[in-house]
Design a protein around this nucleic acid. Sequence first.
DNA 1: GGTCATTTTACACTCAGTGCGATAACGTTA
DNA 2: TAACGTTATCGCACTGAGTGTAAAATGACC
Lengths: 197, 197
Amino acid sequence: MTTGRPPSTTHDQIASVALDLFARRGFEATTVEEIAAAVGVGRRTIFHYFPSKNDMVWGNFDWVLDRLRTHLEESDEETSLIDAVRRAALLSNRYPAEQLPELRIRMTLITSVPALQAHSMLRYAAWRQVIAEFAAERLGVAPNEIAPQTIAHAALGASTAGFTRWVEHPEEDLDGCLETAYRLLAEGFATPAGDQG
Amino acid sequence: MTTGRPPSTTHDQIASVALDLFARRGFEATTVEEIAAAVGVGRRTIFHYFPSKNDMVWGNFDWVLDRLRTHLEESDEETSLIDAVRRAALLSNRYPAEQLPELRIRMTLITSVPALQAHSMLRYAAWRQVIAEFAAERLGVAPNEIAPQTIAHAALGASTAGFTRWVEHPEEDLDGCLETAYRLLAEGFATPAGDQG
DNA sequence: GGTCATTTTACACTCAGTGCGATAACGTTA
DNA sequence: TAACGTTATCGCACTGAGTGTAAAATGACC
């Protein structure tokens, strides 16, 4: 692939510039035209790299899905379904410390901007699909059956609740927030009134 | 309310006309201008009744929320949290038979059109809030704590999985689909029939 | 008829997203 | 050097959702 006009920007560069503008001026207040200008490229080019403005806030989400899948596959056959899911969810959300600030900015936007909250539904459908496929294999049914689907939805709920907690409480760590949420799930909400991590 | 110009249409009429057009021509292919023309009203008037095209697909969702809240409040103090939530979710989704076809059309749109899938996130936030407030009172913590939030997210996941199942399997009944999903939740995904019913 | 309250509506606008076609920038080949 | 193929960029024109505003319509009441 050495022929043709060389690209004048990259996926990552646009995402980085956009995230910066979103964080400083707000998501809605930032137009695609402004992002294009900041990158030094035409507006039309932006849409060549991203299908929508919403998609710019997700980093490399496919990479997260890959990690999730990998961790699920390496799970012990004797581990219970919920424990396997919990473990994979936690491990796939381990980040080097230097990436956490950017992750926090992204998740803050996603959990607070209505347009992004809504759009997250579409992104998380892929996440649920990974869980559903794993659960389906464990249970010996099709991924679109109600059991795998419910497990996938509930697991996503736990992850979402954990992430939201982390976004709103910068002093706590992400792993702990997710751990707490998944524990509640595993216990069927049979939580003693005193304990609420 | 006897003074001023009388309204030339109603919330319900617009919703009904819109739903019909969506079902026949598709959601994306139907423009707001077409809906306005079908109702016999200006385009601008439509946006006086609905904040967005997406919102037209939901019927009286506030009414569902009220029913959910009512059923939660009337729950026995001795009933476990998850059982109270399950019972309220099931009861608030009982519809007279003649309303089911329209409900199915709505839910089919919501679960299949990407823009509506995304938008549902915003509507369901209110649903989760009702659950979270109930769970919070039961647990003696604030509604935005992780336990009520996780429970709310997971319950929504069960409802969503149940509804999706019902949409894709017209021969099954809604109550049964929801029941199955909530049972999985209550048992912490433990497949064998467990202790807690 | 005149006033008041409320709804409807036209107009003009912003912005996201799309389709299309022209053009720019590169490597290769003659 | 010049022509050519390839790919990216970009401008232009368009659709369609949603908004702000101010005017006009409509009915009730005096």
